[in-house]
Amino acid sequence: MPLTDTVKADLHRYLQEARDALVWKLEGLSEYDVRRPLTPTGTNLLGLVKHAAGVELGYLGDTFGRPSGEPLPWLAEGAELNADMWAAPDETRDDIVALYRRAWAHADATVEALPLDATGTVPWWPEDRARLTLHHAVVRVIADTSRHAGHADILRERLDGATGERPGATSLPAADPTWWAAYRDRLERAAREAAGEDTPDGPGTRATP
């Protein structure tokens, strides 16, 4: 396989793994749980998927003169601030996931059609630094998607304890709930001791800066 094709295959593999992980985090949850804000800044699972779809269509579509034709009113000029980070009641889970899958296909077609050193212009970046290569754009999308897949992993664990990149792959040691409870308690004690706070085992000793 030519080097360029090998690099593209590697990039696609890691991007697709992050995409799949992000979508999987929605499975088995109620409408309320996929939508509700779980941090003070409103981070929520379905909003992360909606955001990721726009990122792919922008960086791996519009940037290289390949608009998808998908209507994205939440990204239009004058749209409400942060409108791409949550789902309105009339935006269904199925529609958002379907949009994300169409974004994958459009982005993958761009990567397949163009060389990695092809250059594009990011419409929403300052003009003096708006040019970038396809390679740069794909790496940027991988980084963004992986970051949000990590957010989703933490949110889902908080909701029902589910973890991992995909079913059967938790990336965690195989242990029962009793072990995890004891492990968490041990970390709590260590944190309190390092901070000089009292623990159930006795007074803490403040660490020297």
Rank of each mutant, 00 (worst) to 15 (best):
A149E: 01
R93I: 09
R36Y: 04
E70K: 07
P71R: 11
Y183M: 04
L45D: 03
H151P: 03
E77K: 07
Q16V: 02
Y14Q: 04
W125E: 11
Y59F: 04
D198E: 12
R189F: 10
L172N: 05
R147V: 05
P200L: 04
A88F: 09
E70G: 08
Y100I: 01
W125A: 15
A18D: 02
K25G: 01
T133C: 06
T133Y: 06
G196W: 12
D185G: 10
P177T: 08
R102Y: 10
R35T: 05
I154P: 02
M85S: 12
A181S: 15
W125V: 06
D201L: 13
D198F: 12
T145P: 03
D33H: 11
I154H: 09
P126G: 13
A149N: 01
P173K: 09
W124F: 07
R129V: 00
E157P: 04
R66N: 13
D117H: 15
W74K: 00
E112G: 08
R102G: 14
A190C: 14
E193K: 07
V97K: 02
D153M: 05
A194W: 15
M85G: 09
T170P: 13
K50Y: 04
E127V: 15
G202V: 11
D153E: 11
R101V: 12
L46A: 05
A105E: 14
E91T: 07
D117Q: 15
A21G: 11
L45I: 10
P37E: 14
N44A: 11
G42F: 03
